[in-house]
Design a protein around this nucleic acid. Sequence first.
DNA 1: ACACAGTCTGCAAGCGTTTACAGTCACAGT
DNA 2: ACTGTGACTGTAAACGCTTGCAGACTGTGT
Lengths: 335, 335
Amino acid sequence: MSIRKVAARAGVSTATVSRVFTQPRAVADETRRRVMTAAEELHYAPHPAASALARGRTCNLGIVVPDVSNSFSAVVTKAVDRQARREGYALFVAGSDEVVHDEEASARALAQQVDGLLLVSPRMPDDALLALADMTPIVMLNRLLDGIPAVLTNLYEATGHAVEHLHALGHRTVVYLAGPDGYANDVRLRGFRDACSRLGMEASELGPFAARFQAGVRAADLVLAASVTAVVAYNDEIAVGVVNRLSDRGIGVPSDISVVGFDDTELAEMVTPRLTTVRIPAAMAGTAAVELLLDLVRGRDAGLASPRELSAELVVRSSTGPARVAPDTGQDPAP
Amino acid sequence: MSIRKVAARAGVSTATVSRVFTQPRAVADETRRRVMTAAEELHYAPHPAASALARGRTCNLGIVVPDVSNSFSAVVTKAVDRQARREGYALFVAGSDEVVHDEEASARALAQQVDGLLLVSPRMPDDALLALADMTPIVMLNRLLDGIPAVLTNLYEATGHAVEHLHALGHRTVVYLAGPDGYANDVRLRGFRDACSRLGMEASELGPFAARFQAGVRAADLVLAASVTAVVAYNDEIAVGVVNRLSDRGIGVPSDISVVGFDDTELAEMVTPRLTTVRIPAAMAGTAAVELLLDLVRGRDAGLASPRELSAELVVRSSTGPARVAPDTGQDPAP
DNA sequence: ACACAGTCTGCAAGCGTTTACAGTCACAGT
DNA sequence: ACTGTGACTGTAAACGCTTGCAGACTGTGT
């Protein structure tokens, strides 16, 4: 089942067979048909490794995500997979489990055998990223670094909207539940702090927490001890953990405490109360990232200039509501 | 950065460099050190495609899942990714979106460039599977076919337990919400039917539904029209959709209707009420599947004999409870 | 008739590794 | 001194495909 057998059977040279599969129009109709027939009869399919070796490209892409089973990552991956396949590329996936070392190792390993690499919320140091970018084209999601194309969202503003929303509901003391260190957390945190100080709200922070449900459950008790009326959580999973634990302890959401999440994963609509959350267009980001990446792969120098920015937006549902009169914080609202 | 440059720099032949990377102990210490130094200085790393071509193996595995962003698939994928990496393999992922044709196409495409393939709940016809198995070693999850190794769960029994559980709670009319056609649905359905008839329960079926939340929402109204007191749903997502919609319509779960899901995804603990569900050990299945696959790849003919069976079990939570007196079904219980 | 362009095909040299085989060398045994 | 052994290294032929180059052929314009 090598190209030679097919060539022999069709009575042509291997070059012709190769052309039939890579540039069909360069071959006469009659010849092409003969070759195709022979190929089918022999169940021939070109050998990807050989092809990759000869052409210097693999027609494979790779994606490295923090957590394969995280809903946000999964949605991104799904979109990427879809778009990649549509463009004729197969997709490697690797999860780093938030471990920087593994992330870097996986990325380097994949870099060898792909035409381009997608890094979702990478946490490795800048120079590691630049080194990677030297090996293969890369595009990042949710990370900013000069010289590396990226797809971002206006999360800073959207976080501000979330805080404004809480402020408008009468909340004056808010806590931010941090996720794993990194750009993704930084931008949320900055948006949170800036908005709070702009609006004169009392802002505090807890964490970092793992971006998981159980971490949220754990966080809830800390939140309660912090005497706040509102919580902004790093992502939906943490937010849901908080909500569940609060409910278990008899604290009403949003009657006693309001909770805001991030991502707008499917989860947000499934839990009770439905989660107010900052929607990040994960699927769109995945698709856009693949397009950007393929532009690079194909030599168009798009995107290096300025990162592509998508719009995140606050989705108000039922986990946020009017603030209760603040618990004994010792300070009254306006006189 | 080819092996030749390294060889030149280290003053040895390419064969020696190659050996340093593939069978280090076949090279004298001193030589090995020289080669390593040269390699590092040149940032050399072996070219995977060339290596694959020469050795006939790629050190890549592939997995095809019905839906990348589905929680169950994602957990399996995560475990597979982890185990594969641990064994020195990179992982291709492809989602079929439940489309049989895409599933088969993806699988065939991947089969070319992997040492082995994992098929999660494949829905393609038997002969397509056998054809695939001719191209590359494959292992299936949640599908049974003579001659192809698989990892299964005793879902038939576990489904029986779910029905018994409902029966014990006094339920006599149950509906099963079917998922996409295929083995996974079949085994649930058989377990459901058999248990119902064994226990003398009135069983009905609706569907098939897509294995998604929204499909469950839609199903809920059909359930209500069917005048049953209990529901067994194809998976957790559908179950949660049902629960949510029922709640929205003022129907209590479990006070009015009990709901059972499948998979025991993280979701099950996050929603209100927490979901009674049949736990399928997804991560364990993924890990086991990789081990089985690698046994095959490495030539051990394990697993062909009988599929590896893991145990699924009913996890009782709060979405099931004592049956209400049945609505006007026109028939009384025992006289 | 002849030159020329255009279309199609084949030749053969890679692409970067691996590995069977053979060669070299040092050393131990006789 | 000679052979045998083992440890190490090099030679060179694959692996299966791509592609620049050139040759063969057909048809057109003059």
